[in-house]
Design a protein around this nucleic acid. Sequence first.
DNA 1: CGGTATCCTATGTGATACTG
DNA 2: CAGTATCACATAGGATACCG
Lengths: 116, 116
Amino acid sequence: MTKVYGCPVEVTLDVLGGKWKTVILRYLSNRALRYSQLQQRMPNITQRMLTLQLKELEEDGLIQRVVFEERIKRVEYSLTEYGKSVEPILELMCEWGKQRMREFNLQVRTMGTSGG
Amino acid sequence: MTKVYGCPVEVTLDVLGGKWKTVILRYLSNRALRYSQLQQRMPNITQRMLTLQLKELEEDGLIQRVVFEERIKRVEYSLTEYGKSVEPILELMCEWGKQRMREFNLQVRTMGTSGG
DNA sequence: CGGTATCCTATGTGATACTG
DNA sequence: CAGTATCACATAGGATACCG
């Protein structure tokens, strides 16, 4: 049942494609984040989607999920070493997107990507 | 009705996302190609999809469509200057995809991406 | 040759309620 | 807090026939 690709970019798109994964990865690119912290940064994602995408990213080896059994449960997601290898792609995509936004006057809901 | 993005990578994904666009762009990255030549290189795409994706890429300013009114109609697609600005992204995606293929033993229907 | 038109299915995504 | 489960909907993508 191994899927056959016509071009290597398809492989990459299989892993990074869809509405949310690149965004999630970019947030995790800065630092490890909890489930709830990702939610805050992505107000428009549903819990279902967040859970689903995180699971797929984990299965694809890009992120790791660590559970801290404290008084209140805490789960942190972070990039694996392998996951870090997509950072250059994300970086380029982000720069290209910013440039396009400038040229076409598109808008971003700025929510302090800045200082942190 | 202007769409608002939460992260610039979404902008890029709006333009490059989906099953076919990056593949098309990579083929056009080498040289201009005719409609039928693209079809040959992508045996699995339907005419509907090819037409649709080409039209969207054109509307997004990445490719241009030139009609040659010869004895038989000929239409060539090629990257615009703006379209060439995505080449670094495609290149990285391709390299990353190849690496992943090696690591996970995935397959590509090799059809002379090589010298040609 | 380079498309359109029409119909259909699969997948992706969202809303909402519920849980250990 | 960090999820699941279920249902519903929109969009992406495919099959097929036809057109200038």
